[in-house]
Design a protein around this nucleic acid. Structure first.
Lengths: 349, 349
DNA sequence: TTGTATGCGTTATCAG
DNA sequence: CTGATAACGCATACAA
C-alpha cells in the first residue's frame, strides 16, 4: 500500500518482454512500435510476450525521448461553474478516445493562481493547453513562448490570431425569436441579464435582428438589462406583464431569469404557454426539464464545443494549428413553455 | 508551434545549472533537493544559477528514478453531475497547494469505460486514485492489485477496509428537524426522493430520530418516497397541504423537490414561511439563493469532503493509509423559507 | 532483419 | 563537503 511497497514491486519492462520473446531489447522496441522492418513472426512473438506479461511501457522513459507526454493541461478559471462541466466532458470525450489525458487546473479566476498553474503545467510538460473561461467575454491570452499549442474555449482569446471556440450567441438570440414567431407570437420581449456579459449583448442583438427581419420590434426594446437572477426575472417580468403593449412571449437572457419569469407569470394568474410563452438560454436541464411548465431553452451545445476545441488542440499538437474564432452551433430545445396553442386573434399593438 | 519546434527548443537541464554554478552535476542535484550536506555558499550559487536559467527539473527523468509522478487520477463516474464538481474543486484545492496535479477520467458510470480508464491511469503511473461516485450509495471497489492507494469519495466503497469519505446524511436529516423545531414548528412532514438512494433513506431516518427524540412524529410518516423531481415535489406537497393534520413545515429530500414544494405552496396561496416552512438538502446555490423565497437547505459540505479525501490520499501515498468510512460534516444554511415568524398558537393535531 | 551501443535528465551510491 | 558514475526504461542511429 505504501510507496516503498510499490517501488519494490517489479514493474515489467521492455527487457522482460525482450527476454521472454528471445530477442534483443531493440528488436522488442521496434516490434512493439511498428518501427523499421521486423519479421512478422518475430513481431508476433514479441507481442504475445508483451501481452502475457501485461507489459505497459513506462511513459516517462518514453517521454524522456519523444518529448510527447500524451497529456494536455486544462486551465479552467472556475471549476465551480456549470458551463465548464459540459466543455470538460466534451474535451475528455474527444481526448480520452485517443490516449491523451487531461491534467486539470483550476485558477479561481485569479491571475496569480493562473500563472502558478501555468508553470506547473509547463513543468509537467503537457503537450498543449486548453483554456476554459467562465463566461464568453473575450479574455487576455495566456503567457507562453508560443511553442506550446493553446486553444481557448468558451471565453475566446482577445488575440484573434489564437484559436478560440465560443458559442454563437447571436444565432442563439435569433433562433429564440424564430421559434416564437413560428409559434405565432408577435409581441415578444427580451428580458436580459447582466450587461457586462457579451453573451447578454449578443443574444439580444441576434433576437433584435430576427425581429427586424420579420418587420417587428422587441417589446420594451433591447435594453432590459439586469442581473442573472431569478429575482430580476420576476421583477422584470412583472413590469412587462403589467405594461403596454401586452406581450405574448418573453425571451429571458438565460434559464435562471426564465424561471423567475415563469414564477411571476403564474402568480399573476397567466397560463403558460397559452397566455404567454417563455424561452430561456443554456438549456440547463435541472432548471428546464421539470419546471412548471417545462421550459423551452436554447442549448449552447457546450459538450460539442469542448469536443471540437479538444480536437483542434490535438491537431495543433500534431503540427496543424488552427486560427481565429470558431463559433459553436446552437439549437433550440422546445418544451411546453412554448408549445403550440390556439392563440386568439389580436390586432398588433 | 509544432512539436518539432518544441523538440528543437533547448530545455535548460541540470547540467546547464551545474556548469553555470561551477559545480558538478551531482552537487547541483543535491543542492537543489536539499539532499545530503552541501556547503551553504555552494547551495546558494546553485540556486541562483537555477533561478537565472529558469531551470525546472524534467519530471520524467525524475519519475524514472523516484517512481513518483506527482499526479493522482480522479476516476469520476459522472462528470456531468453537480455533486462531483465541489468535490473535484476541494480535491484540486488540497492537491494543487502541493505540486501534485489531477488527471481526470470520466467513466460515464460504465464498467467498461471504468476499466479502460483505470488501465490508462495505471499506465500513466499515477501515485494514487480518487474514486468519485455519482451518489452516496456504496459501490464496488475498483480492481487494483492493492499496491495503488485508492480513496473513495461520495460513494463509499462496499469494502469497509477501503478508505471512504461520504457525507453524513443521517445527521443532515437530524439538523433539518432540529432547525425547524428551534423555529417553533411541530407538524413536520418529510417529502422524500428516490427510495433507491441511501441518501434519501438516511436523511429521513435522521429526521425521524430527531422527531422521536422530541416526542414527535413525522406527519405522513417516513415513507413518502418518490422521484428527485420538481413534479413530485409539487404533487407530494399538494397531498400534504390538503391533508390532515395540517403541516407547518415540509422537509424536502433535496433542493429540487423543495423547489416544487415552494411552487405548490405559493400556488395554494400559502405564505412562506409564515404559513409553512420549507427546507431542502444540498444547498445548491442556483436553486436556493434566489428562489421565492430563498430556500433554507442543509449544506453537505462537499468541497471540504473532497479536500479531506484528497489529503487522505496524499497521506496514503506517503505510506500512511487510512481505513474505513469517514463521515463528512454537514450544516444548515438558513434562509427566508424557515425564517422566524410569530406562529399562531395551535393545538397539536 | 536483428543486435549493440548510446543518450534522454535525474537521482543515488560511492569514493575522493 | 564534492564529484565521478551507475542506474531508471525506452528509442534509435549504426553496425552486423
Amino acid at each position: 500500500m505504501t510507496v516503498n511497497d510499490r517501488q519494490a514491486r517489479h514493474m515489467v519492462t521492455l527487457s522482460d518482454v525482450a527476454a521472454r520473446a528471445g530477442v534483443s531489447l531493440a528488436t522488442a522496441s521496434k516490434a512493439l512500435n511498428g518501427r523499421s522492418d521486423v519479421k512478422a513472426a518475430t513481431r508476433e512473438r514479441v507481442e504475445s510476450a508483451a501481452a502475457e506479461l501485461q507489459f505497459s511501457p513506462n511513459p516517462f522513459a518514453r517521454a524522456l525521448h519523444t518529448r510527447q507526454t500524451g497529456t494536455i493541461g486544462m486551465l479552467t478559471s472556475d471549476l465551480d461553474n456549470r458551463f465548464v462541466l459540459p466543455i470538460l466532458l466534451g474535451a475528455e470525450d474527444a481526448l480520452g478516445a485517443g490516449s491523451t489525458s487531461v491534467l486539470l487546473a483550476d485558477t479561481r479566476d485569479d491571475v496569480i493562481r493562473e500563472q502558478h498553474h501555468l508553470r506547473v503545467l509547463k513543468m509537467k510538460r503537457v503537450d498543449g493547453i486548453l483554456v476554459v473561461g467562465r463566461n464568453t467575454n473575450p479574455r487576455p491570452p495566456i503567457e507562453t513562448d508560443g511553442s506550446l499549442p493553446v486553444v481557448y474555449v468558451y471565453a475566446p482569446s482577445e488575440d484573434p490570431e489564437n484559436a478560440s471556440f465560443t458559442p454563437d450567441n447571436v444565432k442563439a438570440g435569433r433562433i429564440a425569436v424564430e421559434h416564437l414567431l413560428a409559434r405565432g407570437r408577435r409581441r415578444i420581449a427580451f428580458l436580459n441579464g447582466d450587461m457586462t456579459y457579451s453573451a447578454a449583448r449578443e443574444r439580444v442583438a441576434g433576437a433584435e435582428a430576427a425581429m427586424l427581419a420579420a418587420g417587428l420590434e422587441l417589446v420594451g426594446g433591447a435594453n432590459m438589462y439586469g442581473q442573472w437572477s431569478e429575482a430580476w426575472g420576476r421583477s422584470g417580468a412583472l413590469a412587462l406583464l403589467d405594461g403596454r403593449p401586452k406581450v405574448d412571449a418573453i425571451i429571458a437572457g438565460n434559464d435562471v431569469l426564465a424561471r423567475g419569469v415563469l414564477d411571476m407569470a403564474r402568480s399573476r394568474g397567466l397560463r403558460i404557454p397559452s397566455d404567454i410563452a417563455v424561452v430561456g438560454f443554456d438549456n440547463w436541464d435541472i432548471l428546464c426539464q421539470d419546471s412548471w411548465p417545462p421550459l423551452s431553452s436554447v442549448d449552447m451545445n457546450l459538450q460539442d464545443l469542448g469536443r471540437r476545441a479538444a480536437r483542434a488542440l490535438v491537431e495543433a499538437i500534431g503540427g496543424r494549428p488552427s486560427r481565429g474564432i470558431h463559433l459553436g452551433d446552437v439549437r433550440l430545445a422546445p418544451r411546453e413553455s412554448t408549445a403550440i396553442v390556439d392563440l386568439p386573434e389580436v390586432p398588433v399593438s
